[in-house]
């Protein structure tokens, strides 16, 4: 006779505070206020504190790179999970923004705090124009085209020996001091993070999500899908170009490596780790993955092996992503009950 297994299941109960509508909460106590505000505050203060906590110049530089990846990841998550365009365009955006900032700084002599915003806007316009032909299409084409452009531009620069050729553009102006350098990008990441989060819940953001959900119904509502995709791609590529323009100014050099495919691939990994579609999660993912890859430098050539193993472990054991997991833990009571 078989012993009968005790069967249990997890019961989940919402911890939530009383919510009146999308954005209005009925707060009854300080505890509820803390419950709502604390996670956001921890994130903001935590990121703002990072440069102060870093022991060496090297790690402070890592923070800047992390922030660039965070912007790219945000742009990937926004396009993939709120507009339905899978973008591998990180390298394209970084390269375009980077070279533009370099040109603006070198030939017009603009200081970084002017050339970066200009390169962001002009770069985003250029990227959007380049990507415009494939926007009416659905499916994998957008991913292919965004992956193709950086390879193409890299070869064009190499073959025609323009924009410094393989040497790149050197001697680009840097920031006044390292605090400006650090806090500029950190504040940008926070601004874009909360900005995009707000945007996707606005009416315009709902249209983006509708395009992802069902583009035919959007057409039947008298709205051009291409137009809204164009706006979304502009916003996403602006984030990428900002990162690129900043990168060029901290390295004081714009070269072919700004078109490196790392910029396209790492954001996807960070999104998987952080939790797709949460916007905050992917940013956290970037804040975890990039430092890990730096820490693993001690292993020399084996670095990529360990890196891949860590990624694999995340995908197998926590495929939902850190953010989705911790949001659930935070918002719900869980207990085992006997069935």
């Amino acid at each position: 006779m078989k012993a009968q297994h005790e069967q249990r299941r997890k019961e989940r109960l919402d911890r939530g505070i009383k919510v009146r509508s999308d954005g209005i909460y009925a707060l009854m106590s300080w505890r509820e206020l803390c419950y709502l505000v604390l996670p956001r505050l921890v994130l903001i203060v935590g990121i703002l504190m990072l440069p102060l906590l870093m022991p060496t110049m090297y790690w402070q530089r890592v923070i800047s790179i992390v922030c660039i990846y965070a912007l790219l990841t945000l742009s990937f998550d926004f396009l993939a999970h709120f507009v339905g365009l899978v973008s591998l365009g990180g390298a394209f955006f970084i390269g375009t923004g980077g070279y533009l900032a370099a040109i603006l700084n070198q030939s017009l002599g603009l200081p970084p705090l002017l050339s970066i915003p200009l390169a962001t806007v002009i770069g985003a316009i250029i990227c959007t124009l380049f990507l415009l032909p494939c926007l009416p299409l659905r499916g994998v084409y957008f991913a292919i085209v965004t992956l193709m452009y950086p390879l193409l531009l890299m070869r064009v620069i190499e073959a025609l020996n323009i924009l410094g050729g393989t040497d790149g553009i050197v001697g680009i102006g840097s920031f006044a001091n390292r605090w400006v350098e650090q806090y500029f990008i950190i504040i940008m990441v926070l601004l874009f993070l909360f900005g995009v989060r707000r945007l996707v819940n606005q009416d315009l953001g709902l249209v983006f999500r509708a395009v992802k959900d069902n583009d035919q119904a959007v057409r039947a509502s008298g709205m051009s899908i291409t137009y809204y995709k164009t706006i979304a791609v502009f916003i996403a590529s602006a984030m990428g170009c900002l990162g690129g323009a900043y990168l060029v100014h901290i390295y004081m050099w714009a070269g072919l490596s700004t078109f490196a495919l790392d910029f396209s691939i790492l954001p996807i990994a960070a999104t998987v780790i952080g939790g797709a579609g949460t916007l905050v999660g992917p940013v956290l993912g970037a804040f975890i993955l990039v430092p890990i890859s730096e820490l693993l430098r001690a292993f020399g050539t084996l670095r990529i092996v360990f890196y891949a193993l860590i990624l694999l472990a995340f995908i197998v054991f926590r495929s939902e992503g850190i953010m989705v997991y911790s949001q659930r833990k935070y918002h719900q009571f869980e207990k085992w009950v006997r069935v």
Binding site: R209, A210, N214, A217, A220
Partner: peptide, 15 residues
């Protein structure tokens, strides 16, 4: 063809 990921009333915000 509704927008499955949105509540019914948000479906109408789009048109």
């Amino acid at each position: 063809r509704p927008y499955f990921s949105l509540p019914a009333y948000k479906n109408l915000v789009i048109p």
